[in-house]
Structure formats: C-alpha cells, structure tokens
Amino acid sequence: MTLVVFLLVPRLHLLDLAGPAQAFSTAADLGHGYELRYVAEHEEVPTAQGVPLRASVQWPALTADDLVIVPGWRGRFAAHARLSKATRAALVAHHASGGTVASVCAGAYALAQAGLLDGRRSTTHHALQDELAARYPATRVQRDVLYVVDDRVVTSAGIASGIDLALHLIAVRHGAADAAKVAREMVVYARRNGDEPQRSAMLRHRGHLSDTVHRAQDLIDARFADRLPLAEIAAACDVSPRTLTRLFSAATGMTPLRYQQTLRLERAENLIAHGSTVDAAARSTGFDDARMLRRLRSRLP
C-alpha cells in the first residue's frame, strides 16, 4: 500500500487538494494500492473557500514508495504558511529516505522553506514565479510549464495543474495506459493550449470529439509496447485502415504509428529519469533495439 500524504496549510485552495486527491483515489478504485492521508500542524485547517478541514497532527510512518504533496493556498508566499521546524524536517527526511515530495501552486514555498528547492528546478503559479525566484534564488524557476520534476521533487503551476502532476506521477509508476484510465474516469482529456512540454502525450492529444479516434487511442494506450498493426487497430474501431489514418490525423495531428511511438518515447524518458538504462528502457517500451530510442531522444528539444 502506497501512502499519499497531503500536508494541509491554512487557507489552502480546495482544488489544489481535491484534484490530485481525486486522481489517486480513482487510481485506487481501479486497483492500485493507494491510501490517502492528511496531516497539518493543527487539527482544523481553514480553506480559502470557507470549508474547514480536519487533519491529523501526527505524521504516519513513511517509506520511499510513499508520496507527500503540499497543496497551495491563497495569498502571497509569506502569508499563512510559515512551517514549523518539525514539519520542515519531516519533508526533508522523507526526501532524504528516497521518497518523492510534490507541491501545487504556492505549495512550492513550503518545499523552498525546507530547502528542497535549493539547486533544483521548480515552478509555481505564474503570478508567484517572480516572488519565488526573488525569495529563493538558489532554485531555478521554470516559467510557463505545468510541472517540473527534479530529483524526486515535483512542483506544479496553478490550481488545476495539480491534476496534471498527479497523472504524471501515476504514469511514472503504472504506465501511460493506467494514467489514461484515471484521466478518462475524471473526464479531463482536454488540456490547456500552449507550449507545455511536460504534458503527457496521452492527454495532450485527447482534446477532440472523435469517438473512433478515442477508441483507437484507448487500444494504443493499453498496448503501446506491443506490435500493433494498423489493420488490427482499425478492425477494433470498425473502420478501414485508410479511414482510421485520416480520422486520427485530423484529430491528433499525427498517425496512429507516430502516436504509439510518442507514448513509447515518453515512457522511456520517464524510466530513464528514474534510473533505468537506455537499453532496459528500450526493452520495456517495445523498441526493437536501443539505437532507435537513442535516435529519437537525440531529436528531443
């Protein structure tokens, strides 16, 4: 059982908490072993939207597989969220033991207080990026991205980006297909526009209305590491290969084969970022050999 521990700060935004909490709860409903816990420095936590929450003041025992997430709050960084020495130490200890810590929106300030952003890349809500950079010059603030991953420290932008963060963490642990199932249950296929290189490909190309293409993507998402002839995908969608290619290209801007290759490459990048060798990542994601994976990685911006 993996614990997902949310550290609640006064005046937190409900969606900063509810978005990732729903994602991990849905993943648990789909058969993954997640248990959600809530901790705070005081049992009652006021929220920005006026609904009080209750949390434990005792941290559970954590392992390296567990996650700690800090939702953001209303107000500037310095307001409402000066963490105690014990809370900062708990964040540091979890990361030092091999665990992952994450933040949504202003929650980056909590990680910065604990020193976890020193020397690491980070992001936060666009309205707070200048303040984060000024208060904590040791962190390298990345602008105009949904989330940033740096050595098991994951920071995300404003409010709803916490869902993107949670889906990324689920994809890293269980693969793109399972994260896509969670996203579909939450009805969050449509993503924001703009240059967001950290977005998952399984979500980036789901903002369309073609049921046929969604069915094709469901099959590719679930079996992206397998050999999937175009004819097999088309048959599963009750259309001809030519029609599928036309519909798929119109909806996503790429062919089914290119989409599958994109999923493979993204999953391989996740594996490599978490310590896998290129050869092992290539085998796990369905590449015939590591040379193809290396060539594709060399073309990445």
Rank of each mutant, 00 (worst) to 15 (best):
V153H: 04
R204H: 12
A190M: 03
D150M: 08
L111K: 04
R204T: 09
V149E: 12
V145P: 12
D226W: 10
H205M: 11
Y136R: 05
L228F: 12
D178K: 11
S161H: 10
G115V: 04
L169F: 11
S210T: 08
R206A: 15
H174I: 01
T212H: 06
R120I: 02
L116Y: 09
A177L: 01
R152Y: 02
T139P: 01
R121H: 14
A160G: 05
R192Y: 14
R223S: 14
V213T: 07
A180F: 04
A222H: 06
V182A: 10
D151K: 14
V182M: 11
D211N: 08
R227I: 04
G207T: 00
S200H: 04
R184T: 14
R215W: 10
D211M: 08
L167T: 02
R199G: 04
V148M: 06
R152P: 00
H214I: 03
R204M: 09
V148Q: 09
L219V: 12
R199A: 13
T155R: 08
R135H: 11
A201G: 11
I159Y: 03
S156I: 01
A179G: 11
G175N: 11
A179K: 02
E185Q: 13
L165P: 03
R191G: 00
R143V: 05
R173L: 09
R215V: 03
M186D: 03
Q198K: 09
R199I: 04
V149R: 12
I159F: 05
G119Y: 08
A133N: 08
Y136Q: 10
L230C: 05
V188G: 01
D195S: 14
A166V: 04
F224M: 14
R184N: 14
A134E: 14
G175C: 10
L146S: 15
R206H: 11
D130A: 14
G119E: 06
R199P: 00
D221R: 05
E185S: 13
A190S: 07
V145W: 11
H168D: 07
V141P: 04
D130R: 13
A176D: 09
R215D: 13
T155W: 07
V148G: 12
L203E: 01
H208I: 03
R143W: 13
N193Q: 15
A157P: 06
Q113P: 06
D211K: 09
D218W: 06
R192M: 13
V148L: 05
N193Y: 15
R191W: 01
P229F: 12
H174G: 02
H205A: 05
I159A: 10
G207Y: 04
E196S: 10
Q113M: 08
G207V: 00
L116P: 02
A157Y: 07
V188L: 09
P197I: 09
A127E: 14
D151Q: 15
D164C: 01
G175R: 03
L167I: 02
R191H: 02
H174Y: 12
H126T: 03
T155L: 06
N193D: 15
T155E: 05
R140G: 06
V188T: 13
H126Y: 15
A157H: 09
L132S: 07
G115K: 03
